[in-house]
């Protein structure tokens, strides 16, 4: 992938409103061709709204969106495959009927639908069930069918909206293997998820989304750069702002953020931090886990920084 490659997706200051609520609020992003790009953010952060626009099923209220150099239009959909967060299937139809209908809707000929269906159902382990009604499939099988259906017309851009929700780990691995194997680097994949571990494993570029805007973007390595070596997760229900501020000032400590009862701390050496934590709050700490710093820590660091910046602006 050349650094000078022109973007396949360009979003500039997009705003999208549902009534009074702003699902996207100054959303800007650039995705180069051939990448596996992760949109990471909590539920309601605007990921699905952005996917719907990329699929040319909705338009921005404000701002500019260009995909393959053009605005959202019906013709664009020919080049895009979409796996929706909820299955786009009729439980009374069989797998094969679903594929045939999808192929017709995308203007494919009968013989190429047949050949491609056999290829994809084989890749996703559904070939033996091709004559079965969707209602008889497991949740994981339905997600695999969703993937196969989205790839049927060989789209240049594949949009995946939380594709592995409800899928067990073994099935998840098989699904990603089939999916990335089918791309062969020629397809651009945009993955919207709140599973940061999954994104860390498959994405070569990610953007952190919060409240309808991108708060940080880069490769996972770039985003993790600057993090301390280790990530300490502390279950600390009664942690006060004063205690957290004190921890943040200890030597070797990076970011200190909290998410409900869990405090996330990045640190050079957890072995030095943990005894001091227990000394600071001997009754308050319920559990401690130590890991290498991950994309999840980078996410909390960037999102937390954004929240602090917003507080400073408001003040």
């Amino acid at each position: 992938m050349s650094p000078a490659a022109s973007p396949l997706i360009e979003a500039d200051a997009i705003v999208h409103r549902y009534g009074e609520r702003r699902a996207l609020d100054g959303f800007s992003l650039s995705v180069v061709p051939g990448s596996v790009f992760g949109l990471l953010g909590p539920n309601g952060s605007g990921k699905s709204t952005f996917i719907t626009m990329l699929a040319a099923m909705d338009r921005p209220t404000e701002g500019t969106l260009r995909v393959f150099g053009q605005g959202p239009c019906a013709a664009l959909r020919q080049r895009v495959g979409t796996v929706f967060q909820e299955n786009a299937q009729d439980p009374l139809m069989t797998i094969e009927e679903t594929m045939r209908l999808a192929g017709r809707l995308f203007g494919m000929r009968g013989d190429s639908i047949g050949a491609r269906t056999t290829e994809l159902l084989g890749a996703f382990g559904l070939l033996e069930r091709r004559h079965d009604a969707i209602a008889t499939l497991s949740g994981g099988m339905r997600r695999r069918l969703e993937m196969a259906r989205a790839l049927l017309h060989d789209p240049e851009l594949l949009l995946l909206d939380e594709p592995t929700t409800g899928v067990d780990p073994e099935e998840r691995r098989a699904l990603w293997s089939a999916l990335l194997g089918s791309a062969k680097g020629a397809r651009t994949v945009l993955l919207a998820t709140n599973d940061l571990t999954e994104a860390d494993g498959v994405c070569d570029h990610v953007a952190f989304i919060k409240d309808g805007r991108v708060v940080a973007s880069g490769t996972p390595v770039e985003l993790k750069r600057g993090l301390r070596d280790e990530a300490v997760r502390v279950r600390w229900p009664g942690a006060t702002e004063g205690q957290l501020a004190e921890v943040a000032h200890w030597p070797g400590t990076g970011s200190v953020t909290h998410d409900g009862e869990t405090v996330h701390i990045t640190v050079d050496a957890a072995s030095e931090l943990v005894p001091r934590l227990f000394a600071l709050a001997p009754e308050g700490i319920r559990a401690v886990s130590i890991e290498r710093s991950s994309l999840e820590d980078a996410y909390f660091q960037h999102v937390s920084r954004q929240a602090v910046a917003a507080e400073v602006v408001r003040a």
């Binding site: 013709a75 299937q89 139809m93």
Partner: peptide
């Protein structure tokens, strides 16, 4: 029924009007 089962999304994400 098509909207609630979800298959309408498949129709609308196709290039058809």
């Amino acid at each position: 029924r098509d909207r609630d089962s979800g298959i309408m999304r498949m129709f609308l994400s196709s290039p058809q009007s």
